[in-house]
Structure formats: structure tokens, C-alpha cells
Simulated scan of single mutants.
Amino acid sequence: MIELSGVHKSFGTLEVLHDVTLSVPAGSVTVIIGPSGSGKSTLLRCVNHLEKVDRGRVRVDGELIGYRRAGNKLYELSERHILKQRARIGFVFQTFNLFPHMTALQNVREAGGGIELLEKVGLAEKAASYPRQLSGGQQQRVAIARALARDPKLILFDEPTSALDPELVGEVLDVMRDLARAGTTMVVVTHEIGFAREVADTIVFLDGGRVVEQGPPSAVLDRPQHERTRAFLSKVLV
């Protein structure tokens, strides 16, 4: 579903991603973990061309994202074409990004969905509520419903629970578990290691913009091969 080949990304003189190569099969859940500033969110944003890669290629379902090839050269696509590509890639941000002047249902309808998507995330009874009337967990569930509205090929989650109070985290993770069981292709940046162990097919440990280690949860979390991975996990697995 996703193929990243030799992806590099810098902001000025700061190299954020270095030669990242990664494959995400259709129907799988890939969880990206790593310390703050390791490039996790930037990697997600490169998948749907919210950030332009400096070198390397990103393909989703075989289609080159953000560019077209003509001979030996690549040309950036028009904004209209890029938006069309993004419409097939759901993105759930850590800060919800709901329209405050719209109800929960109106937020979902703005993306082309309906009440059935609010039902899917357990919020049909909140259809007429505005974001300010919802808890953080409920707002994030509305955001997930909105991301599902265009029947995307995959959904990217950028630390979807990091802005939530601890007691609200579970309700969002439950929705994500349901999506995983339904075979939704997901790439999730998260610090929720328990969720990663339970749901992920593959865990990727990113540090300094590089893929240090990747594999099934039992390997990466229980038998990490790299000292940097072991050092990170020793601080988060408490």
C-alpha cells in the first residue's frame, strides 16, 4: 500500500529524515515509535505530500505521490491533483482540527460522510453537538469519522491521543482497534506502547530521522537488536 524509497527531508540545515525506506502492506497496521524530534510526524506528512521530500520517492497503492514522471524528470503535480491524491489518504491529527462553528455531523458531512460514520465511532447521539460541547476524546472520534468519510485507502494517525487527558485515551484507542480488526490500512505515530503491542503488525523505531529497527511487536519490543532501541524502551516500558 505504501512504499517509501530513500526518503530524505531537511528543514534548512537540519536533516529530519535520512534515507528512509519502508513498506506498508495493504490491510496492515504499522506503528512508528521513537523519541520526540525523531522525524515521526514529518514522515507521515511526507506520505500525503503535506511535506515535500528532498530526495526519494513515496508511492501509495503504486501511484507516485506529489509528482509525475516525464522521461527521466519528475514534475510536481498541480495543487488540484495533489488534493485529489490526499482525498484518498485519511489523516487524523493530534489537535482534532474540527470546524468549531459546525456540529459533529456537519464536520463529517463537510468531508462527504454521514450519520453512519458517527455511529461507527459511537457518537450518533452527539450529531448535533458543537466541538466545544464535546470532550477531547469525543472530538478526536469525530475527527476519525471525518477521516473515514471519503473511504480512504489508508489512514495516517499522528499521535492521536497525545492531546487527551489520560482517562479519555481509551475511547479513541478502542475505535482504532475496531478499524484495525476491520482490515483498515493504518500508519500510527504514538507513544502508546501497549496499543502498539496489541494492534501493530509492524513496529518501526525511528531515531534521528533513520529507521533503526523494524519488525513484529514481539521482536522490537521484547527482543530489540539495537542498543538505541533498548535504551528508548527502557524509559517508556515502565
Results as ranks from 00 to 15, higher is better:
A26D: 14
R210K: 14
A26M: 12
R146F: 02
R88L: 01
G208N: 09
D165M: 11
P25F: 03
Y67W: 15
A196L: 10
V16I: 13
E51W: 04
V169G: 10
Q138I: 00
R146D: 01
R181H: 08
Q85C: 01
D207F: 05
S129L: 09
R80E: 15
R230Q: 14
H18Q: 04
R68D: 11
A149I: 05
R146T: 01
M176G: 02
A70M: 13
G90N: 14
R197S: 15
H49V: 13
P100G: 07
F99S: 09
V47S: 05
I89R: 11
L117V: 02
A143F: 07
V58L: 11
D174A: 14
Y67V: 06
L117C: 01
G137S: 07
T202P: 07
K52C: 00
F91V: 09
D178T: 02
C46S: 11
Q214C: 14
L164E: 07
K126R: 09
E159D: 05
V187T: 08
A104R: 00
L134Y: 03
G71Q: 13
V175K: 02
L134V: 06
V92F: 11
T30Y: 03
L44W: 02
R132E: 10
A26T: 07
L50R: 05
P216K: 12
G6N: 12
Q133N: 04
G12F: 06
T190I: 04
L156N: 04
S41W: 13
G62P: 04
L233T: 05
V236F: 08
T229N: 07
F11Q: 00
A104G: 00
V236S: 12
D61L: 08
E198F: 10
G113F: 00
